[in-house]
Design a protein around this nucleic acid. Sequence first.
DNA 1: GATGAATGAGATTTCATTCAT
DNA 2: TATGAATGAAATCTCATTCAT
Lengths: 190, 190, 190, 190
Amino acid sequence: MKLKDDKKYARIFGAVLKLVTKKGLAGMTMGDISKEAGIATGTLYVYFDNKDALINALFAACRENSVMVSFRGYDAQQPFKPGFRSIWMNILRYRLHNFEEFIFQEQCYHSPYITAATREKARQLAEPLYALIARGQKEQLIKNLEPDILVAFIIGAMNELVKQIHYTGSTLTKTRMNTTFDLCWDAIKA
Amino acid sequence: MKLKDDKKYARIFGAVLKLVTKKGLAGMTMGDISKEAGIATGTLYVYFDNKDALINALFAACRENSVMVSFRGYDAQQPFKPGFRSIWMNILRYRLHNFEEFIFQEQCYHSPYITAATREKARQLAEPLYALIARGQKEQLIKNLEPDILVAFIIGAMNELVKQIHYTGSTLTKTRMNTTFDLCWDAIKA
Amino acid sequence: MKLKDDKKYARIFGAVLKLVTKKGLAGMTMGDISKEAGIATGTLYVYFDNKDALINALFAACRENSVMVSFRGYDAQQPFKPGFRSIWMNILRYRLHNFEEFIFQEQCYHSPYITAATREKARQLAEPLYALIARGQKEQLIKNLEPDILVAFIIGAMNELVKQIHYTGSTLTKTRMNTTFDLCWDAIKA
Amino acid sequence: MKLKDDKKYARIFGAVLKLVTKKGLAGMTMGDISKEAGIATGTLYVYFDNKDALINALFAACRENSVMVSFRGYDAQQPFKPGFRSIWMNILRYRLHNFEEFIFQEQCYHSPYITAATREKARQLAEPLYALIARGQKEQLIKNLEPDILVAFIIGAMNELVKQIHYTGSTLTKTRMNTTFDLCWDAIKA
DNA sequence: GATGAATGAGATTTCATTCAT
DNA sequence: TATGAATGAAATCTCATTCAT
């Protein structure tokens, strides 16, 4: 008697991510997923109770992953701007390199699959970002607007940039990354 | 003799927009739409060949509408910044006041309902915005980056702001609109 | 106030006949018929109570027409064989020149559209043919088998010949008509 | 693990054949078929892509079956006439005993369900019959007409006979079979 | 646990018929 | 009478989920 197979979770998640950019969340059936993952439909139900649970689990995983990556290498001791910059770059790189995860999360956010609980949990994961903004404001380096507005601005701009870059297929040189960061920085700096 | 009723197009479109915020694009059936519109299911097929066609038509209509509104009152003779500002405000107001249309368009963009042709047509409608950016660059008022990047930045930031404002239910005072515009302007100004 | 238009009956019947070879009886909708006839769907219901009535009416018309033509020029005074021959030729020519009517009747015969009453009426129209066969048998020119069998044989063979000729697109010369008649005659002659 | 069930194909085909004589090809729904076959509607789509595919598959199966049976017991070494006779009898018996299959094929032939490919494949299966006719002509036992004409004549006559016999409910004694064969033979013999 | 056939509720679409003009 | 939009019942087909192996 075999135990649940961790590799299979990965295969299933991978399949969903691959499909979401092609078919969207709406047009993706359990049959599609199982086929893409190379397993039987029934097997999906060994690993997840139902479609909702599957989507929610992947959403949570992506979210956690994305936050972890964002703050990688961040040192609260260093001055604000370079710290903020490295986080900004982390997020940008993450979304570009994990474009499918990024799109998946976007699609989920306004879908009926995601429960209120999952949504709330996702929001909490953004806390460190709010804290960072607060620090910048305290140090009078960042405009003194509501943090919600600032975060929305920063994230919204970045999201669209990522799509732009991905869909036009343009390579992102260091210089270009710098200039786009400057756009953001000029917007929010005090 | 009964003729095809223009009001019915409006009723159908209205129904879809009402439903999309409640159920999402995925969870919206033709039955839901017809019921919401107060007509028989079969009647939907008098006006549209199928669900895809219906969604595409509404998408195109929203897109066109949104562009038309954006440039309302724009006078190319006036100096750049106030012109740009009025357009930016138009877009913001439009998305806030027609939040359902805005969400609908976002949901559509990565869905399998929208055809490549519709997507391309949507892109073309953004041309005036690109032209405006070009003018700003020519007058050396705006940073000399690729217009794609600048547009993505402006639009992305605004989209997220709109959602932020809508979901938190905060009222948008004139002062707040001004400060958010300043965020944008500071980002892109030369 | 206009009266029912005789030309319209013809247009409707013509449309059905044109469609039956293309789409078959099964795949033919009232919409198809009205479009092909160049009238509105609703108008069909001015002329016929419903689809069944329409099909039955056309079936009856075809049947009557086909019988009328079969015995055209037949003179009961002339000797049997030439009389039988001319009738046989009449039937063959009719089916070839009115191939659509012929196919339509075949399709109807085993369809749920045709009522038992219509079917029975159709059978009665074949009476003269039975009478003819009886005469041939009385004159000991034709095999003394049950008339049903003989008629089935003659008609069945001819029907298949007609299709053969029509679909291969071969032209039917006088000589070929004669040889095919001889096939039939050799079969049934005493 | 459950595997696709060959018996289920048979059940489905059986259901269609049972229904076609009752309701005709037109009036037969997928719901009717599944009910008659004692399975769920959805299950039909496990076995066939759609209604067309189902009808085409059954048509092909009937055709193949009918040809196989026709030449059962045929020995090319024996003289022509008894060989031809045994095949003729095979075909007649097959159509009588599998009347539903026979009617189904007839209904299909001019229906929109059957694709050109299926039609062509059906034609090819008739080749052995053409070869047989050719042999008879070579041995100068059969009239020297185009084989198409002869086959059409033989088959057409038989088809109508079969219907005649079936619908009148008359039992087919050996003597009657012989006399009807003689009709056919007298027609085509040199 | 793994499989994929089986299920049936529900989605999309069709179409004979009606109805307002 | 003529029109063709409107209807809704019924047809086809899909798909999340279950179940037998």
